[in-house]
């Protein structure tokens, strides 16, 4: 088991390296420098800036320098927030994004699995149809549509909940962003859970359990839940990536000073080092979380464990 985990960890290293190379090359292959778009600078100053950011070195040297920094947790200076390094910016902004994302993930899992299981057990009844209709709507409406519409109705029109982030305190301000972020994932997880639960409930071993006189509750608890959760577990990786993506939009709409907002601002401002740093950070996060999911999968499915 431990060996399996370590092997997977080693396997993730080439992936991460690939990510770094790819992201680095993309940024540096870009036409034009980071300081172009603004007013034309005197050649001398431009050269000074280039030297200060090591832009005058050959590409491979820049890459080696970047990699060395990376190993020590240094992602270089930000081009726009001149007083901060990229690492500092990430360290400041990420905890908030993490809180948001973790809450959304938890909500999505609890509500999604519950709704999906309910629909599967009540298959082809009215409640199943309604739930699945809602879920279909949920996966069809992007976060950036749900979020402003929720704000418009619940905050602006009805004034039940705070709309913005700044000027509000307490847990209430988390409510809308977390819901907006979680809704599509709730829908997706509900559909996934329903489908796999129906599959499992139709399997021979559930029929055996019924023949043994186990009631529905006992069958779900002792026989069906674990196998039905496997597809949900494999979806956790993509779900994490989707929530990260969604958080970019949600933070932008609600004005939350999280990492997503920095990312969008950086992208629009052509703050290359910041964008590069955040992409690498996100990718590392997703790869590592996928690793955790993989290991969890091995822990649940005895047929995999024996390898």
């Amino acid at each position: 088991m431990l060996r399996y985990a370590l092997l997977r960890l080693l396997g993730a290293i080439p992936t991460l390296l690939l990510v770094i190379v790819l992201a680095f090359l993309m940024v540096h292959a870009a036409p034009g420098g980071p300081f172009d778009a603004e007013r034309a600078l005197p050649a001398e100053i431009e050269a000074n800036i280039a030297a200060a950011y090591h832009l005058d070195e050959p590409l491979y040297q820049q890459f080696v320098r970047y990699l060395k920094g990376l190993v020590q947790g240094d992602l270089g200076p930000s081009y726009r927030y001149r007083d901060h390094t990229v690492s500092e910016l990430i360290a400041t902004a990420f905890p908030l994004s993490l809180k948001l994302g973790a809450m959304a993930m938890l909500l999505a899992l609890i509500v999604g699995v519950a709704a999906g299981s309910l629909a599967a057990l009540r298959r082809n009844t009215l409640s199943d149809r309604v739930l699945m209709m809602l879920a279909m709507t949920g996966i069809s409406i992007p976060v950036f549509v749900i979020a402003p519409v929720l704000v418009l109705f619940l905050a602006v029109r009805l004034q039940w909940l705070p709309a913005g982030w700044s000027g509000n305190e307490g847990a209430a301000r988390f409510l809308l962003p977390v819901i907006a972020l979680a809704l599509p994932q709730i829908a997706y997880i509900a559909r996934l859970t329903r489908a796999s639960m129906i599959d499992v409930l139709a399997s021979d071993f559930v029929r055996t359990a019924r023949a043994q006189g186990l009631g529905t509750a006992a069958i779900v608890r002792y026989h069906a839940l674990k196998p039905a959760m496997l597809p949900v577990l494999s979806y956790l990786g993509p779900a994490i990536a989707a929530i990260l993506t969604g958080s970019v939009v949600v933070e932008e709409i609600f004005g939350i000073p999280g990492l997503g907002q920095f990312f969008v601002r950086g992208a629009l401002n052509r703050d290359y080092t910041l964008v590069l740093g955040i992409v690498i950070f996100y990718a590392t996060l997703v790869v590592l979380l996928n690793l955790v999911v993989d290991i969890l999968y091995g822990a649940i499915d005895p047929r995999i464990r024996r390898r």
């Binding site: 399997s203 021979d204 071993f205 029929r207 055996t208 359990a209 019924r210 023949a211 043994q212 006189g213 186990l214 009631g215 002792y222 026989h223 674990k226 196998p227 649940i300 499915d301 005895p302 047929r303």
Partner: peptide, 24 residues
């Protein structure tokens, strides 16, 4: 029915690979 199953009538199925829960 559940009080009859297993206690009064029990069943052995054809393919034990499918009929037993692989996760338990």
């Amino acid at each position: 029915l559940n009080s009859v199953r297993a206690r009064h009538v029990a069943m052995v199925f054809q393919d034990p690979m499918q009929a037993l829960n692989p996760f338990t």
